[in-house]
Amino acid sequence: MIRRRIFSAALTVAALLLTGHAWAAAQGPSVLIETGTVHRERIGQRLTVYGQIVPDPEHVTGISAAHGGQIARLWVGLGQQVAAGQPLLTLTTDPTARLAYEQARAQVAYARRNLTQVKSLYAEQLATRAELAKAEQSLVNAQGALRAERRLGTDHAEQIIRAPQPAIVTRLDVAPGDRVQAGAPLLSLGARERLWVTLGIEPEDVTRLHPGMPVVLRPVFARNQPLHADLSQVHAVINPSTHLVDAVVPLSGSATLGLIPGMWMRGHIDLQQHETLTVPSSAVLHDANGAYLFVVAEGHAQRLDIATGISRDGRIAVRAPNLHAGETVVTVGNYELRNGMAVRLAAGHS
């Protein structure tokens, strides 16, 4: 009796399995897939360019020798960041410049004595008013010449030249022991919070750019947050050192934090945009007939031949007569599909 019941149960299970296999065979094979959505959005070609950070030349301060002398000491090095009032270099006064100061001081003393004498003669009516005015003017001129020498620093045997503002030493023209003439350049200071990003543009792309276009910048070798700025200049000549055309993006204030002159930057410039349909890039496949994708409809995958366009940020522009925004396309598992094949969604996808 027991054996008969076991045999009957086995027959029932076998019948159920055969029924299931028959139903599956009737339905045909299915593929496990993941999907994405067709979007309608504005998209345009993106120009990727590279360049370097340089000090803003409009905010570079040149430090020159006010008088002749010799460099006694350099307090800073090229590329060093300095604070306002920080010593930059020590310049000893040239003997000739020192002599000019002494002569100016002697001239003041002489003009003062001469004026005293002319005033005395004028009081005794032995000098004219014109002679008195001339003596007074001579003193004024001599005092002005002495003040000028003091402004030049020739009244000191040596002079410490200090930074007028927070800055970066962008150029050094002298070394300790160098003798310099009056007006000779000593060094240059670039404003710390005023930088340029000089991007190199291929000559054939220049006509597509204009000042005011937005640029997204990111350091090539660092993970800084992207910076959003605008082109301020697009040059019209080729830079002979890079064989590219320079385009300038100015940065100031907090945008310069963490950036160093000489750092390489990558820039993305969005060109003219237009509205189009886009799909995830992984949805697009290619064969001998061209590009195509699979649209999911009523549990089945339908092949749709397409034309592709610009690809950006993981999505690609596509065109097809029967493709519409909001439709579902296959992004994973599409390599296994054939037209009309049944599909089932992976867990977590709907």
Results as ranks from 00 to 15, higher is better:
Asn239Asp: 14
Ala100Val: 13
Asn141Gln: 05
Leu17Ser: 13
Arg223Asn: 13
Pro176Val: 04
Arg5Phe: 07
Ile2Gln: 02
Leu187Trp: 05
Ala14His: 06
Met213Asp: 12
Ala145Pro: 12
Pro57Asn: 12
Leu152His: 03
Arg223Met: 13
Ile33Arg: 01
Gly333Lys: 01
Ala24Arg: 09
Ser241Val: 12
Gly44Ala: 07
Leu16Asp: 03
Thr19His: 06
Ser120Asn: 10
Glu275Met: 05
Ala66Cys: 05
Val169Ala: 10
Arg162Asn: 14
Pro203Glu: 11
Asn239Tyr: 03
Lys119Glu: 15
Val215Ala: 10
Ala167Ile: 07
Arg42Asn: 15
Asp155His: 14
Ala14Cys: 14
Ile310Ala: 04
Val296Pro: 02
Ser311Phe: 00
Thr92Glu: 02
Tyr292His: 13
Ser241Tyr: 08
Asp270Asn: 07
Lys119His: 12
Pro57Tyr: 08
Asp246Leu: 05
Gly267Pro: 06
Leu32Tyr: 03
Gly190Val: 10
Arg113Ala: 11
Tyr50Asn: 04
Arg46Thr: 15
Leu139Asn: 11
Ala291Asp: 11
Val197Pro: 13
Gln165Leu: 15
Pro211Trp: 06
Arg151Gln: 03
Thr116Asp: 11
Ile160Leu: 04
Ala123Trp: 10
Asn224Tyr: 02
Pro211Phe: 11
Ile6Leu: 14
Val206Arg: 11
Thr116Ile: 08
Gln27Pro: 05
Gly267Asn: 05
Gln225Met: 08
Gly314Phe: 08
Ser311Gly: 13
Thr276Cys: 05
Glu149Ala: 12
Pro219Ala: 00
Val169Phe: 02
Ala111Phe: 06
Leu16Val: 15
Val38Thr: 07
Gln233Thr: 13
Ile201Pro: 06
Gly79Phe: 03
Ile238Gly: 05
Leu189Cys: 08
Ser254Arg: 14
Ala347Arg: 14
Gln225Ser: 10
Ser281Gly: 06
Val49Cys: 07
Gly144Val: 13
His210Pro: 04
Val54His: 10
Gly153Arg: 04
Leu11His: 05
Ile316Gly: 00
His324Ala: 10
Arg40Trp: 00
Leu88Phe: 11
Ser64Gly: 01
Ala106Val: 14
Leu199Trp: 10
Val108His: 06
Ala320Leu: 09
Met1Thr: 15
Gln272Ala: 14
Gln80Trp: 01
Leu323Thr: 07
Arg105Asn: 08
Leu244Arg: 11
Gly200Trp: 04
Arg147Ser: 11
